[in-house]
Computed example of a mutant assay.
Amino acid sequence: MSICPAITPPSNVPKATGTVEIAEPSGKLTLADRQLFNHLLAHAYRRLITDEWHTVQMSEIRRFAAEARGGTPENDNRRMKDSVKRLQATVVEFNYLRSDGGRVWESSPLLSTCRIDERLGSLQYSFPSGLRERLVEPALYSMISLRVQWEFDSKYGLVLYETLKRYADRDAAQPWWSVKTSELRDLLGCRDKLTDWKDFRRRALDPALEEIDRLAEFRVLVIETRQGRGRGGGQVVAVTFQIERKPKEDAAATVRELDKPKVQRRGERRAKAEDIVSAVATRKALHFLTGAEAGTRLKWVKRAEAMGIELPKAASAVENLARWVPQIAVALVAEERIR
Rank of each mutant, 00 (worst) to 15 (best):
R202F: 03
R203Y: 09
A204D: 07
L205G: 06
L205S: 01
D206W: 01
D206Y: 08
P207S: 01
P207V: 02
P207F: 02
A208F: 01
D213R: 15
L215D: 08
L215F: 15
L215A: 04
A216T: 08
A216P: 05
A216I: 03
A216G: 02
A216E: 00
E217C: 01
F218H: 03
R219L: 03
R219Q: 11
V220G: 00
L221I: 13
V222C: 11
I223E: 08
I223F: 04
I223N: 09
E224F: 11
E224R: 06
E224V: 09
E224L: 09
R226G: 07
R226I: 07
R226L: 08
R226P: 14
Q227N: 08
G228N: 00
R229Q: 10
R229V: 10
G230Q: 13
R231S: 13
G232Q: 05
G234Q: 06
G234M: 08
V236M: 07
V237Y: 01
V237W: 02
T240P: 07
T240D: 01
F241H: 03
F241W: 05
Q242K: 09
I243S: 07
E244C: 01
E244I: 05
R245I: 03
R245K: 08
K246P: 02
P247Q: 02
E249H: 15
D250T: 07
A251P: 02
A253Q: 13
T254A: 10
V255L: 11
V255K: 12
V255G: 02
E257D: 09
L258W: 09
L258T: 12
D259V: 14
K260Q: 13
K260Y: 09
P261H: 07
P261D: 02
P261T: 10
K262R: 14
V263G: 02
Q264I: 15
R266E: 11
G267E: 10
E268Y: 00
E268M: 10
R269V: 01
R270K: 11
A271Y: 00
A271E: 14
E274F: 05
D275Q: 11
I276H: 04
V277D: 03
V277M: 05
V277Y: 04
S278G: 06
S278M: 08
